Measured scan of single mutants.
Amino acid sequence: EIHIRTNGEEQARKVYKMLAKRNYDVKIEQHNGQWVVTAS
């Protein structure tokens, strides 16, 4: 499982799309105001 911390919604969405293209199961979560993308 991969966790990627991003500094904002826009970046989180870019990372989300990139990983989704590679057939990862991707989730975006917010932790303490930080956007974290989780891929498995």
Rank of each mutant, 00 (worst) to 15 (best):
T6L: 14
Y24K: 06
V26D: 00
K17E: 15
K21D: 15
Y16F: 10
D25Y: 11
N7T: 12
G33F: 04
Q34D: 08
N7F: 12
H3S: 11
H31D: 10
Q11H: 11
V15W: 14
I4Y: 12
A12I: 02
I4N: 01
I2W: 13
N23G: 15
R22M: 15
H3K: 13
G8T: 15
L19G: 01
M18W: 15
T38G: 02
Q34L: 10
K14V: 05
V36T: 06
Q34G: 08
Q30R: 10
G33P: 01
M18K: 09
H3I: 15
Q30T: 07
K17I: 12
H3V: 15
E1N: 09
Y24E: 03
Q34I: 14
G8W: 12
Q34E: 11
M18C: 15
T38P: 00
T6H: 04
N23A: 08
E29Q: 09
K14Q: 08
A12R: 01
K17L: 12
L19K: 01
V15P: 00
W35D: 00
I4L: 05
Q30A: 06
Y16G: 15
G8I: 14
V36D: 03
N7A: 12
M18G: 05
Y16T: 04
K14D: 06
N7P: 06
V36R: 04
N32A: 08
I4P: 02
A12E: 00
V36I: 13
K21L: 10
I28N: 00
N32K: 06
H3Y: 13
E29M: 10
E1M: 14
Y16V: 09
I2M: 06
K17Y: 09
R13F: 06
I28A: 02
V15S: 02
V15Y: 11
Q34R: 07
E1K: 14
V15F: 11
H31A: 08
Q34T: 11
W35L: 02
W35T: 01
K27L: 05
K17T: 10
I2S: 02
R13K: 12
E1S: 12
H31G: 04
H31I: 15
M18T: 06
H31N: 09
N32E: 10
N23M: 11
Q34C: 12
Q34M: 11
R13V: 05
R22T: 07
Q34Y: 15
L19P: 01
V37W: 00
W35I: 01
E10G: 06
Q34F: 14
L19Y: 05
Q11M: 11
V15G: 00
H31S: 10
A20R: 11
G33N: 06
E10I: 09
I4W: 08
V15L: 14
N23S: 07
E9F: 14
K17G: 07
Q11W: 13
E10L: 12
R13W: 13
E29K: 07
S40A: 08
I2K: 05
A39M: 12
R5W: 14
I28H: 00
E9S: 05
K21S: 13
E1Y: 15
E9I: 13
Q30G: 04
Y16Q: 09
K17M: 12
A39I: 15
G8Q: 11
A39N: 04
V36P: 00
L19F: 08
K21I: 10
Q30I: 12
W35Y: 04
M18F: 14
R5Q: 06
A12L: 03
T6A: 08
G8L: 12
K14L: 09
R22L: 15
G33Q: 03
D25L: 12
D25S: 09
I28R: 00
E9Y: 15
Y16P: 03
V15M: 07
K21R: 10
R13M: 08
K17F: 08
H3F: 12
D25V: 13
G33L: 03
M18P: 01
I2Q: 02
A12K: 01
N32W: 05
E10N: 08
K21F: 07
G33S: 05
V36S: 05
V36W: 13
K17R: 10
M18V: 08
S40I: 13
V15E: 03
N32Y: 06
I2L: 08
V15H: 03
E9Q: 07
R22P: 02
K14P: 02
Y16S: 10
I2N: 02
I2F: 12
K17S: 09
K27A: 06
N23Y: 15
L19W: 04
I4A: 02
T38Y: 08
I28F: 03
R22A: 13
E10V: 10
V26W: 02
D25R: 12
Q34K: 08
N7S: 11
K14A: 09
K14G: 03
Y16I: 07
S40R: 13
R22Y: 14
K27T: 09
H3N: 08
R5L: 13
I28V: 06
A39W: 12
K21T: 09
A12T: 02
R5G: 04
V37I: 08
G33K: 04
S40G: 06
G33R: 03
A20G: 04
W35E: 00
D25P: 05
Q30P: 03
Q11R: 07
N7L: 10
A20Q: 13
V37H: 00
Q34V: 13
I2V: 06
Y24W: 12
Q11L: 11
I2T: 04
S40Y: 10
H3M: 13
A20T: 09
N23F: 15
A12C: 15
H3Q: 12
A20D: 04
L19M: 05
H3W: 11
T38W: 06
A20V: 14
R22K: 12
I4K: 02
W35R: 01
